[in-house]
Amino acid sequence: MAAYAIEIIIAVISMLGTASGAYFANKKSTVLVAYRLEQLEKKQDVHNQVIDRVYELEKSVALNSEDIKVANHRIEDLEKK
C-alpha cells in the first residue's frame, strides 16, 4: 500500500509541475501575442492617417485644378475682348 502512495504522490507532483509549466508558457505566449497585436494596431492607425491625408490632398488638388480651369477661361475671355 505504501508503494502505491509514493507513486501517486510522484504522479501528482509531476502533474503539478507539467500543469504549471504549461500555464506559464501559455501566459508568456499570450502576453507576446497581445504586444504584437498592439504594435500592429499602432501601425494600422498610422496607415489610416496617411490614407486620410492622401484623400484630403486629392480633394484639394481636384478643387485647385477646377479653380485653375475657371481662371484660364476667364483669362481667355478677357483676351478675346
Rank of each mutant, 00 (worst) to 15 (best):
1 M>D: 05
2 A>E: 15
3 A>M: 10
3 A>E: 11
3 A>T: 07
3 A>Y: 09
5 A>E: 09
5 A>Q: 05
5 A>G: 00
6 I>A: 10
7 E>L: 04
8 I>V: 09
9 I>E: 13
10 I>G: 01
11 A>Q: 09
11 A>W: 02
12 V>M: 08
12 V>G: 00
14 S>D: 07
14 S>W: 01
14 S>Y: 01
16 L>E: 08
17 G>R: 05
19 A>H: 10
19 A>W: 07
20 S>G: 02
20 S>T: 13
22 A>W: 11
23 Y>F: 14
24 F>V: 01
25 A>W: 00
26 N>F: 08
26 N>W: 09
27 K>Y: 06
27 K>Q: 11
27 K>S: 10
28 K>D: 12
30 T>H: 08
30 T>Q: 15
30 T>F: 08
31 V>C: 01
31 V>K: 13
34 A>H: 05
36 R>M: 11
39 Q>A: 04
40 L>R: 13
41 E>R: 14
41 E>Y: 13
42 K>C: 07
44 Q>I: 14
45 D>H: 07
46 V>D: 08
47 H>M: 15
48 N>R: 09
49 Q>K: 13
50 V>Q: 14
55 Y>R: 15
56 E>D: 10
56 E>C: 04
59 K>G: 14
60 S>W: 10
60 S>A: 15
61 V>R: 08
62 A>T: 15
63 L>R: 09
63 L>K: 07
64 N>F: 07
66 E>K: 11
67 D>F: 03
68 I>D: 03
69 K>E: 12
71 A>I: 02
72 N>Q: 09
73 H>T: 07
73 H>R: 11
75 I>H: 02
75 I>G: 00
76 E>G: 01
77 D>N: 15
78 L>H: 03
79 E>K: 04
80 K>Y: 00
